[in-house]
Design a protein around this nucleic acid. Structure first.
Lengths: 345, 345
DNA sequence: GTGAAAGCGCTAACAG
DNA sequence: CTGTTAGCGCTTTCAC
């Protein structure tokens, strides 16, 4: 059975397509179409199981009703949670969400964004960018294309951004370790290190050390996504067993933390007795990890909600100056720093 | 600057839209359009930064180039992993993937499927259904709408399905516990229990006990998604401290397992010494949980790949009889059953 | 080898 | 209050 279209309803009722369209879009009132006619239309639509064709409508109005979301990896709980919130929020507003993963490769992200915009004609994009070059974004901005950055922001351009105070979050974490008596605190970063959040976190780490007059050499290592196991093992080993003789480790995100944890276990080092650990980004799994990890948690729901708000503002047509929403992080103290132990200072 | 359309290219080159369309769709050869003309067209398209409008094309061809995926919760690592694979596979074939979460509520899933099909005009749907009623699916089948079930299958209808041998997986898990010396093995299920996978897993559990002549009473509890903490606490307490006095727990999926783990920790019961634990469904986090959990792992990538293959077969137009792909599970032995300990039988 | 023309289903300007 | 008409951008049939 063929799908019912506006025309079918119109013909069955001996009215025009226009009328039907108006009624079904709830503009009947405003055009003063009689109650009775409206009822007939609704009834017939129901009867024929009518559903508007999004593509036809989109073609006509120039609006696809789709929002795009590009993240590094949707199977990372961090992005998955944000994505859920964004999906929920845009759905409320009548949009669909198209989610893509860039796998942390800049060229892929570039293509994904092009695809979403040019082919799929999404009405706006939310992105946790992995690109160093901001050329594409400058271009989008010129075109006034609705765009908001989450988590990571591009270099040197005013932009709509929702994220957390990475500097302060890292600072708090490191200071917590210091208060608990740790001094030789190593940092495990991850390439590509130009990502804005990473840089801010490293800065927070450095300044916390400086404030407490701690001078360390070779205390920072960066692992790499495409050879995560090997590079993590090397980094951890060097930090813990090498010159630094680390008594604490600060990992720059959850993905890195998970890998560190495994290496540490393999090396039979005790956490927090031998080395303490804090990780930027919380996730459910850390509640029951061995040991439960102390983390810097981000307000993921809030990030999702705010990003949608910012996007909608741009989509409303008014030209709004780029806005940033910097949200606070929260130090979630569990057991990987030993602050719960009797002997803790 | 307005976007370039076929017409723009045609006018700039003084040829027809038809010609341009043919060339750009790589049908130039087949229609015997001269090399030279083709080159001109490609060049101009590049120059004007032309991108086909997916909506216009879709309207004309009746194909949206979109595949829908409906799961319970995309932020559950289990579905996130499958989703990644599916996204990768359909992208290879030139489709986009639209992912929606039903939150385990049947009515929501029903609406989501309607929306995808009627409004968004997706060309096929892959679903891990949470519906008990199969009415919608019967209807879809009548219409020959491309549909494949993953993980969970609907009751009493031949369907295209990709999943694992849940019965055997559960059987193996329980038998492993028995071999390790456990006898009073409780099972923690989750409502709604009509879900096919759950039923099969419970069956596997029961038969493993039967095979070893173990008779248990009140050894099965079901917790509930919408009040997970409280119901889990009750279930675990009753199983472990109550009449059964359980020395082992089998949880029916990862979500339930995570909650059990927390309750167990809170109750200060030692795993595996006091009670052993196995969970159906593996996830990365269980590698470093306390303790590392022994699990029944599903081949998630394979499930994703196969489901896309099955979907494409249906979309190709030929009528194919419903097919099932039942893949094997794998028992991943870690430390929550004590089989690694010296004293294990 | 190439072009004209129709039409997918919808919306919106305009006419009455 | 309701209808006519045009057209969004593309593909495809048919004609030359």
């Amino acid at each position: 059975m063929k799908r019912a279209s506006l025309k079918d309803i119109a013909e069955a009722l001996n009215v025009s397509k226009t009328l039907v369209s108006l009624v079904l879009n709830n503009k009947g009132e405003q055009w003063g179409i009689s109650e009775e006619t409206q009822k007939k239309v609704f009834k017939k639509a129901e009867e024929l199981n009518y559903h508007p064709n999004q593509m036809a409508r989109g073609l006509r109005t120039g609006k696809s009703n789709i929002i795009g979301l590009v993240v590094a990896d949707i199977s990372n709980p961090f992005y998955a949670k944000i994505s859920r919130t964004i999906e929920r929020e845009v759905t409320k507003l009548g949009f669909q969400l198209l989610v893509c993963s860039s796998d942390e490769v800049p060229e892929k992200e570039y293509k994904l964004i092009e695809l979403l915009k040019d082919r799929q004609r999404v009405e706006g994009i939310i992105v946790a960018t992995t690109q160093e070059n901001n050329g594409q974004f400058i271009q989008l901005k010129k075109e006034q294309f609705p765009l908001v950055f989450i988590d990571r922001k591009p270099e040197e351009m005013p932009s709509n951004y929702v994220g957390v105070d990475n500097y302060q979050g890292a600072f708090d974490a490191v200071e917590h370790m210091i208060k608990v008596g740790k001094r030789r605190i190593g940092l495990i970063n991850v390439s590509p290190t130009y990502i804005s959040t990473l840089q801010e976190r490293v800065e927070g780490y450095k300044n916390a050390l400086k404030k407490h007059n701690i001078k360390l050499v070779n205390s920072i290592h960066a692992v790499s996504y495409n050879d995560i196991e090997k590079t993590t093992e090397e980094a951890v080993r060097d930090l813990v067993k090498g010159q630094l003789n680390a008594d604490a480790l600060f990992t720059v995100n959850n993905y890195v933390a998970v890998n560190c944890l495994q290496v540490l276990h393999k090396m039979n080092v005790r956490i927090p007795e031998d080395v303490a650990m804090i990780c930027f980004d919380d996730m459910d799994a850390f509640k029951f990890s061995h040991p439960p990890l102390t983390t810097v948690a981000q307000p993921l729901e809030k990030i999702g909600e705010e990003s949608v708000k910012l996007l909608m503002k741009q989509m409303s047509g008014k030209t709004v100056p780029p806005q940033s929403r910097i949200l606070p992080t929260k130090l979630v103290i569990r057991k990987s720093c030993g602050s719960h132990l009797a002997g803790a200072k």
